[in-house]
Simulated assay, not measured.
Amino acid sequence: MAMEADEIRRLIVAAIPDAVVEIDDLAGDGDHYAARVTSAAFAGLSRVRQQKAVYDALGGRMGTELHALQLTTAVPAGGER
């Protein structure tokens, strides 16, 4: 079962309210996406912890409803909290 980009965005923003989420459907099949998530909440976190926060927001859907997510995370310029 494919997952819509809007659902991915909704789940991420529900868990990380200030997140700016940009999503591209890489294959046009609703299964392979690239996402860039920018949030001040990532300030001071390693890239691994930033990405874990995003994957946690997806609530176990990786590998089931969502097959592949090429993920980039970032802190906004001047994003220290």
Rank of each mutant, 00 (worst) to 15 (best):
38 T>C: 00
50 Q>A: 09
61 R>G: 10
80 E>A: 15
30 G>P: 10
34 A>V: 03
29 D>F: 00
35 A>M: 09
67 H>D: 07
5 A>D: 13
64 T>S: 11
81 R>P: 15
76 P>K: 09
26 L>D: 00
51 Q>R: 01
72 T>D: 06
37 V>F: 11
31 D>E: 15
66 L>I: 12
60 G>F: 05
50 Q>D: 10
32 H>A: 03
61 R>A: 13
62 M>E: 03
5 A>E: 13
47 R>N: 08
22 E>K: 12
78 G>N: 01
27 A>P: 02
36 R>Q: 14
57 A>S: 15
8 I>C: 06
76 P>V: 06
63 G>P: 03
11 L>V: 01
81 R>K: 13
30 G>H: 07
53 A>N: 12
40 A>F: 00
66 L>S: 11
75 V>I: 14
68 A>K: 05
38 T>E: 14
41 A>M: 09
72 T>H: 12
72 T>P: 00
37 V>K: 10
74 A>T: 06
75 V>L: 11
2 A>G: 05
66 L>W: 00
7 E>A: 12
35 A>W: 03
65 E>Y: 07
55 Y>C: 11
72 T>E: 07
73 T>V: 01
62 M>Y: 02
29 D>E: 01
6 D>R: 13
2 A>L: 05
7 E>P: 00
71 L>D: 05
43 A>G: 00
14 A>R: 07
54 V>Y: 11
3 M>W: 14
51 Q>N: 01
23 I>C: 10
79 G>H: 00
20 V>Q: 13
33 Y>S: 01
14 A>P: 04
65 E>W: 02
8 I>T: 02
50 Q>H: 09
72 T>Q: 13
80 E>T: 15
59 G>F: 02
17 P>I: 04
